[in-house]
Structure formats: C-alpha cells, structure tokens
Amino acid sequence: MSAFLSLRLKRAAVLSPPLLWTILFMFVPYTILFVYSFWLKKYPTFEPAFQFGNYLEIASDPQYFRVLLRTIKIALLVSLGSFFLAYPYAYFLAFKVKRPGVRIALYMAIVAPLWVSYLLRAYMWKTILGTIGVLNSFLMSVGILTEPSSIFLYNQTAMVVTLTYIFIPFMVMPIYAVLEKIPHNLIEVSSDLGVGRVCTFLKVTLPLSIPGIVAGFPMTFCLSFGDFITSFLVGGPDGLMIANVIATQFGASLNWPLGSALALIMLVIVLSIVTASDRFERFSEGKFA
C-alpha cells in the first residue's frame, strides 16, 4: 500500500509541474479570452457583461468579413505557392539526387533559413521590393524602368511572396519525409509494367505522398493565417490581415472584447483545420498501412 502511494506521489511530482503550467498559462488565458469576448467596451476600458454585441458587430460590419476573406485568400495562396515550389524540390531530393552528402546539403539549405530571424526574412523583402529598394534600382540601372515603381511593395503579391519565402520549409520537410520512404522499386515496377512516367507519378508517387501534403498544407496555412509582422512590413493597407486587426484592438483601439471575439474566431478556424488534417492523417494511415 505504501509502495503504491509512493508511486502515486512520484507520478504526481513528474506530472504536476507541466499540468499546472498548462492549466495556469494556457487553459486559464484562453478561458479569459473567451469570457472577454462577451464583455462590453466602455471607453476608456471595458466592463463585464454577457452579450453578443462583439460577435454581432463582426457579423454585421462587412470590413471584418473582408479582412477575414483576404487573410484566408493570402494564406491559401501562400500554401499553394509553397506547395508548387516545395514538391518538386522534395521530389528532386528523394528521387533524383544520388549522393547522400548532396542530399543532406540540399535538405539543410531549405531548413537553415528557419534559424535566421523571422523578422529579418520579412525585412529583406521590404528592402528588395521598396521604391528605393534593390529591385527598383536594379531595373532602373538596366533601363527597364525609368523611374522607381511602387507596384512591388505594399500589396497582396508582396505578402504572398514574403510569406512563401518564410514558411516554405514547413512544406518541404513533411513532403520530403514521406517521399523519402517510398521504395524506389515501386516506381521501377510501375515503369517495368509499361506505365509512363507521368502516369506512374500520378498513380503511385503522388497518392503515396498525400500524408506529407496533408501535414504541410495546414502548417503553412495556419502560420500565414496568423501573421501580422509580415503584413505590417510589406502588406500595406491592401495586405491587412485578421491578426493586424486583433493587434490593433489590443493596442491603439483598446477594445479588448472585440479583439477577443476576433481571436476566438481565428482560434476556431485554426482548430478546425488542425482537427480536419488530424482526422485525415488517421484515416489515411489506416488505409495505406
């Protein structure tokens, strides 16, 4: 009995610090956010209430809906852009590179930028795309442009390019992990049976790599979906994201209840994407393995 008790004590000792931490710093703060979203803004602060005014305001004011749609659109384009760059790259690594040294080097080349400051990676594109930036001055010095153009910076294209640049490693890593595990003889068999290479890719390689795509897509989507730093640097008013609106509510506008409501909407969207991809992963595991 005492041995049983001491085992329980030891387990409690291992378990309680992380448990307490998660409850105090994650569960409680999210709950507070949830509660805040029903509060009432009373300038200069806000007061407890239970009303759906914040949600109603979001639903009735089309500007919130526009920002939300724009954020989803940009996040989708970023995921697609990263996918179309990441897939060939991962495919090349897994099937075309023969020497393991080269493969490791090329893999590291994709992952390494993750270690370089995220802020700097956004900043670089600001210096490249700006009116007095590298791209403009270069185009002028070669004679393509006669005066600096402002079309490169502060728009959604700049956002998509920069976010793709920042988050592409999160697409390459899972896709490569899956492609690497596909046995090469599976593809050889397919070509021995007279199936063309395009057909082999569409019928063998691509379906087998779906779990990697399903892991990479939500990751890049969620990361770009919640971004407000890049938008601030290269987005301009046209590239305003939902996270920027939330940041403003918690900052200058001092409307925490509305900000909380927006944050909860964001949370629900992110959670449903993560859950959906989780489900799919489990489903496909059962199917393929």
């Binding site: 703060p29 969620c222 919640g226 939330i246 944050a263 949370l267 992110v270």
Partner: peptide
C-alpha cells in the same frame, strides 16, 4: 486534453498566445 492543449501553440498563431497571456497578467 492535456496533450492537445500543450501542443496547441505549434499550430496556433503566436498572437493568440500573446493576447491571452496579456489578459491573464492584467487580471
């Protein structure tokens, strides 16, 4: 639930961690 909660910040935008903890510290 414990695992889901703890692993949430991987997919969750940093801004949500930021504002929720700001709210906690304010209280």
């Amino acid at each position: 639930l414990f695992r889901k909660l703890m692993l949430l910040p991987i997919a969750l935008p940093g801004i949500i961690t930021g504002i929720s903890m700001l709210s906690l510290f304010r209280i």
